Simulated assay, not measured.
Amino acid sequence: MACNNSEQRDMQIAKELLYSQFPTKFVWKKKERHWSLRKKGFTIGRLVHVPPNCGELYFMRIMLNHVKGPKCFEDIGTVDEYVCATFREACYKLGLIGDDREYIDAIKQAADWGSGFYLRNLFSNLLQSGKLSMPTTVWEETWQLLSDDILYRQRKLLKNPALQLTDEELKNYALMDIENSLQLNGSSLTRFQGMPLPDSSTTAHHRNTLVMDALSYDKKSLREENERQLSSMTDEQRSVYNEIMDAVLKNRGGVFFVYGYGGTGKTFIWRSLCSRIRSKGEIFVAVASSGIAATLIPGGVTAHSRLSIPLNVNEDSTCSQIKPGSDLTELLIRAKLIIWDEAPMTLKHSFEAVE
């Protein structure tokens, strides 16, 4: 339906008004549920006060004081024809809020003399103060400083000086500390839109000593070792290596039986697979039917020891430690590859017990 001249005039006037100015020119007719141009009287429009800790509501209020003629929420959050994901982002693009550079610099300066624990408390205090316009940006710029002491603390706590943590794990530990600090003051990271939340599942395995031992390797030296091993492989060894690694990388699963007389390089292939998988921060489980064979693979142990196979095994035997929720079960679930060296030396009942 086409608009008449009067409606077109009203729409043109509305397009030039801020949200708070609208009542000065228009009157809301309740029965008709329609805004009409004000013909007499005078009214002052105003916006209800919204404190900074209200998140998106606070930033929407800021935008309403700067956007003229919005017809919907998308109009409020549109800057130069770009629809922002959040009102906070829209405020930032219009320069209505700061870039938090002074707070980022403050954390970096404090890192020269303060511990990671102190910096995490500083960050949580800044969050609670409502001073940070873009807390996610501050976090991304400073998380390495905020988690500076995490690795040392975990090594000492777990009594594992060789422990290595990924960036994701470092972030999670730092976020858990920040969340604990906020909760002590009646707040939480969930109140700050865009801030990542700690994922307890990412670091839960740190309570499992079997998993921790399987991950505690120097990834850089293992990558270098793997490069040397690959350059020394024969075509036949490379073919076996590639087929197994392809199944591992694509999560296809599978059972491989590699055989050959002594000196053909079977153990060399195991070591190469081991260095490749562990260099990627994944778990490689190496077991052997004899103690001597187990010592030839880094981190190798006997099958009876690692898999809890009974000494007097029979057709009814089971591995008592492989049960839901146990540390050994978690280790096997997370393992990318399990090598069983000298397998033909083991009774078939042992394999049946493990299966």
Rank of each mutant, 00 (worst) to 15 (best):
1 M>C: 07
8 Q>W: 01
11 M>P: 00
12 Q>T: 08
13 I>Q: 05
14 A>I: 07
22 F>V: 11
22 F>Y: 15
24 T>M: 11
25 K>S: 15
25 K>Y: 15
31 K>C: 06
33 R>Q: 10
34 H>R: 09
34 H>A: 02
36 S>A: 10
39 K>R: 14
40 K>S: 06
40 K>R: 10
46 R>E: 10
48 V>F: 11
49 H>K: 07
50 V>L: 02
51 P>S: 03
54 C>E: 15
54 C>M: 15
55 G>C: 09
55 G>P: 08
56 E>T: 03
64 L>C: 12
65 N>Y: 08
69 G>N: 00
70 P>D: 04
73 F>P: 10
75 D>Q: 00
75 D>N: 05
77 G>K: 12
78 T>H: 01
78 T>K: 04
82 Y>C: 08
82 Y>V: 12
83 V>D: 06
83 V>G: 04
86 T>I: 02
87 F>E: 10
88 R>G: 01
95 G>M: 08
99 D>T: 07
99 D>S: 07
101 R>S: 10
106 A>F: 00
108 K>E: 07
109 Q>M: 11
109 Q>Y: 05
110 A>V: 05
111 A>D: 03
111 A>K: 11
113 W>I: 14
113 W>Q: 09
113 W>F: 12
114 G>A: 11
115 S>L: 10
115 S>W: 10
116 G>F: 06
117 F>K: 14
121 N>V: 14
124 S>G: 08
140 E>R: 13
140 E>N: 15
140 E>Q: 15
142 T>I: 05
143 W>Y: 14
143 W>G: 05
145 L>F: 10
148 D>G: 13
151 L>S: 03
152 Y>W: 15
153 R>M: 15
158 L>R: 14
159 K>V: 11
161 P>Q: 12
162 A>Y: 15
166 T>M: 04
172 N>E: 04
177 D>N: 11
177 D>K: 11
178 I>T: 08
178 I>V: 13
179 E>Q: 12
182 L>C: 04
185 N>C: 14
186 G>N: 04
190 T>V: 09
191 R>A: 13
191 R>K: 13
195 M>T: 06
203 T>S: 06
206 H>C: 04
206 H>K: 00
207 R>V: 00
219 K>Q: 14
220 K>M: 13
220 K>W: 07
221 S>I: 15
227 E>Y: 00
228 R>F: 10
228 R>P: 00
230 L>A: 08
232 S>T: 13
233 M>V: 03
235 D>M: 04
237 Q>H: 05
237 Q>E: 06
240 V>R: 06
244 I>Q: 05
245 M>F: 13
249 L>W: 14
254 G>N: 15
254 G>D: 11
256 F>S: 03
256 F>D: 02
260 G>R: 02
261 Y>A: 08
264 T>Q: 02
265 G>W: 07
265 G>N: 09
268 F>L: 15
280 K>W: 04
283 I>S: 05
289 S>P: 02
289 S>T: 06
291 G>Y: 10
298 P>M: 01
299 G>W: 02
300 G>A: 04
303 A>I: 07
306 R>L: 14
308 S>N: 02
309 I>K: 06
309 I>L: 13
312 N>C: 03
317 S>I: 04
319 C>L: 05
320 S>W: 09
320 S>K: 13
331 L>P: 06
334 R>V: 13
336 K>W: 12
339 I>Y: 00
339 I>P: 01
339 I>W: 01
341 D>M: 07
345 M>F: 08
346 T>A: 15
346 T>K: 11
347 L>E: 14
352 E>T: 07
354 V>M: 05
